[in-house]
Amino acid sequence: MVEVNEMVKIFEGRLNCEVKVQSRKCGVKKIEKHELFVRVEREKFMKAVKLLFEIQDYPHFSVISATDFGEKIELLYHFTVDYGKRNQEKLVTLGVSLPKDDLKIETITELIPGAMISEREIHEMMGVEFIGLKDTRHFFLPEDWPDGKYPWRRDETFPEEMTNKMYERWKEVSRDE
């Protein structure tokens, strides 16, 4: 088990990156819960994941969340370590920024097979390519989904024409009658 301060030092020392610690007093007993946001460069990302494996044998991978910032897309990998111990669990979020013209990142399914669904989801929703991901079929979107349309983007690839504008149709139908 590694204390939060040490963990911050490990990340800062080994990856040479900034770590944001968000501590909140939680619940009635005011137990501190710690969230670490580690934002690394793309080249160091796999190193960061492997570092988590050093801290705990099987870091629990929760999900990847993605945000479109216009020029770049930020992927956040949410992990938890030290689970199974009372009040000791820590949330570690690894963040990677990818420029829009080069949306590629290495897959972590080799290390964590459970990340497959999440990577496939980001692949179809955001158009990020995972190098080494074997199964790249659609998971949530239908099979006949058009290429190059990504519902979670905030740019021209968003499938605007497909959204269901029910309220507008309501007006049209009213006008017809």
Binding site: G27, I31, G84, K85
Partner: peptide, 22 residues
Amino acid sequence: GVKKDVRQDMPYGAYAELDMRA
């Protein structure tokens, strides 16, 4: 056999006071 329970590991709400075990 994975003793993993958010209520125990990272208590929220009133669980820390209620002696919660996975």
